[in-house]
């Protein structure tokens, strides 16, 4: 296999006496969907926070092999550099759009870098110079492309906060794609989606990784998503990696089943778990 895009080595995150992540190592590859699953409180979101400059890890390294900028240490970057330099974007468990802006504006904010350069720090924008207009037109074209892809184009001018929940989730993904990510970190993208929306999400994730070669790191509780789309699954429990492998391997892994369903001491059928675990 090729060298990984993202290599997490011996990552630990401690809050006082609590160890949220304990010596975790994980590789994330291009064109593959890597899922991180585990019971509530297993440290999944903490992992994302360590990747995106929210927390400084207590120890360990997070190295990103950027195709143009070389090797970047994510744990040393500020939040905004994670997106602007490393092109790693994340979404949140609860939707975080800019609720008072329109959908289109939400997507244009994500492309500010191009615009800021073209606008020479707003001066050119203020006077409406051609270079700025071109950059703006380009930003709108990118936004329209992402919106079309996520079937949101007819809602481009709607105020983001007024959209139904499932749609807001799609806007969030569309916005993340406007940053031109090389690694997309999705925190429970299927939460609150109905089965049809969830199936659409599966198709979208598969086309992003399969056709466009995007690396996706996914936290998800919905097993119908995880088992269907993941190429690789990492299972966390109490901050430790307890298992790692393909969906098939995880389905029958004794430790995984134990972490999810508890000790099997009443002769219950361990079997496969296909639905979402109880939360």
């Amino acid at each position: 296999m090729n060298a990984p895009l993202l290599r997490i080595e011996n990552l630990s995150m401690r809050f006082g006496g609590l160890t949220a992540i304990d010596d975790l190592s994980l590789d994330v590859h291009d064109a593959r969907i890597t899922a991180v699953i585990g019971p509530n409180g297993a440290g999944k979101t903490t992992l994302f926070n360590c990747l995106t400059g929210f927390y400084r890890p207590s120890s360990g390294r997070v190295s990103l092999a950027h195709p143009r900028r070389g090797l970047l240490q994510l744990e040393e970057l500020d939040s905004h550099q994670v997106a602007s330099r490393a092109q790693v974007v994340r979404t949140f468990q609860n939707v975080r759009l800019f609720p008072k802006m329109t959908v289109l504006e939400n997507l244009i904010v994500a492309q500010h870098q191009r615009l800021q350069q073209a606008s020479c720090f707003t001066l050119a924008g203020l006077f409406g110079l051609p270079a700025y207009r071109r950059a703006e037109a380009q930003a709108i074209a990118v936004a329209v492309d992402r919106l079309t892809r996520l079937k949101l184009i007819d809602r481009a001018d709607a105020v983001a906060g007024d959209l139904p929940y499932g749609m807001q989730r799609r806007v969030e993904i569309a916005r993340a794609l406007c940053v031109d990510p090389i690694l997309l970190c999705l925190d429970e993208p299927a939460a609150g989606l109905n089965p049809r929306e969830s199936a659409e999400l599966n198709a979208l994730l598969q086309s992003l990784s399969g056709e466009e070669g995007l690396a996706i790191l996914l936290i998800e509780h919905d097993m119908s998503v995880v088992m269907n789309v993941s190429d690789h699954i990492c299972v966390l429990n109490y901050g430790c990696k307890i298992a790692e492998g393909t969906p098939e391997q995880m389905r029958s892994d004794a430790k995984v089943i134990k972490a999810y369903l508890g000790e099997d001491d009443e002769g219950e059928q361990p079997g496969e778990f296909s639905g979402a675990p109880s939360q």
Binding site: H80, R90, K100, M101, V109, Q116, S119, T122, G125
Partner: peptide
């Protein structure tokens, strides 16, 4: 209407998310 204005409004609504989109808050 300008890029700076959009960033400014984005920061007003959600500073964390603005930073994660690559904007220097």
């Amino acid at each position: 209407r300008t890029s700076f204005g959009r960033q400014q409004r984005a920061c007003e609504q959600d500073r964390t998310m603005t930073a994660l989109l690559g904007i220097d808050v």
